[in-house]
Write a protein that binds this DNA or RNA. Sequence first.
DNA 1: CTAATGACCATTA
DNA 2: ATAATGGCCATTA
Length: 96
Amino acid sequence: MSNFQEKVWKVTKKIPRGKVATYTAIARKIGHPRSARPVGNALNRNPYRDVPCHRVIRADGSVGGFARGTKAKLNLLKDEGIKIVGHKVRPKYIIT
DNA sequence: CTAATGACCATTA
DNA sequence: ATAATGGCCATTA
């Protein structure tokens, strides 16, 4: 796997249950501040079970995509007690 | 090497 | 509110 991908997965693994981060924030953390899109691409191809890729959302708070479907992503977030209002995750759950 | 593809983003219509 | 558009950039073909 590429170094970029490994960095994305490593950082994503640290997002605690009940919290979320944005694609842009991940990009910033790994030193590629304009690579939000490639971050999404990397998460789409994530092979590890212990990286919670469902906890990564868009910059505007909307849920964003998921390899197994948006519906599944919503259910996983709901199971962690994350509240969504008007298709947007509440800012209180988002870590910068 | 070039061209196309996106789990994105900001702006505009 | 949605839709289109242009930009972005790692990865893949």
